[in-house]
């Protein structure tokens, strides 16, 4: 049911003899967790969009000196891609009922993610060693802030991942697990997308 059609309804008129509208015109069967996550993703997207806008504005001012690019970031990108891909695969095999693959996928996805965060921390170390401190230049400051906030959101994802695995151990229903993995995969795809945008931003400006 489209939102647009919904708000064209004339509520002062009776729809049917019973006064009840057709089923499907109210409520919905989409799990609330999914709707909640979609809104959360939108909120986080707005936050990054604002950071990026600030980045563009600040970039135009005189004292901006771009940072050198670390090759390690490419590796990290691959790691995050792998984690996002693995979690999607995990969800797919769970749907097919392949329990063993599911376990492997879930663990592997988290390992890739941890590796990504570790990789990011390594990059920060490299940059500091090369003398690119946070306070030297706004380009540096933005780099650390953006990657830092992104990493925090990745860690937040791992927290939800932990809840999924706890659910699995405590023998949760199949549907419930399916929903959890679906939402994990969705969130990781989003984080990957944000990362690609940020990566492009720091590489090309």
């Amino acid at each position: 049911m489209s939102l647009f059609r919904a708000i064209l309804e004339k509520p002062w008129k009776q729809q049917t003899a019973s006064g009840l509208p057709a089923e499907g015109d109210y409520g919905s069967v989409t799990p609330p967790q999914k709707v909640g996550l979609l809104f959360f993703i939108a909120v986080v997207a707005v936050m990054f969009a604002l950071f990026i806008t600030a980045y563009f504005v600040r970039m135009e001012l005189d004292d901006w000196r771009p940072m050198p690019e670390s090759q390690l970031l490419w590796l990290n990108t691959v790691l995050l891609f792998l984690s996002s891909f693995t979690l999607q695969w995990t969800h797919n095999v769970l749907k097919k009922g392949q329990d063993k693959q599911f376990k492997i996928g879930l663990i592997l996805g988290a390992l890739f993610t941890v590796a990504f965060v570790y990789g990011q921390i390594t990059v920060w170390g490299q940059m500091q060693e090369a003398g690119y401190y946070l306070y030297n230049n706004p380009a540096n400051a933005f780099f650390y802030v953006l990657t830092g906030i992104h990493a925090i959101h990745v860690l937040g994802g791992l927290f939800v991942w932990t809840k999924t695995i706890v659910k699995y151990w405590s023998g949760a229903e199949h549907e419930e697990l399916e929903l959890s993995t679906e939402l994990c995969a969705l969130y990781w795809h989003f984080l990957l997308l944000v990362w690609l945008v940020l990566f492009a931003l720091v590489s090309y400006t």
Partner: peptide
Amino acid sequence: FTMGGLNYVTTVLQARTNGMTLMR
């Protein structure tokens, strides 16, 4: 606010009772 807000929005969209269309 974000924690509360996600709740309010999702509740309005997903938890309306039988017959409660948006325009009611």
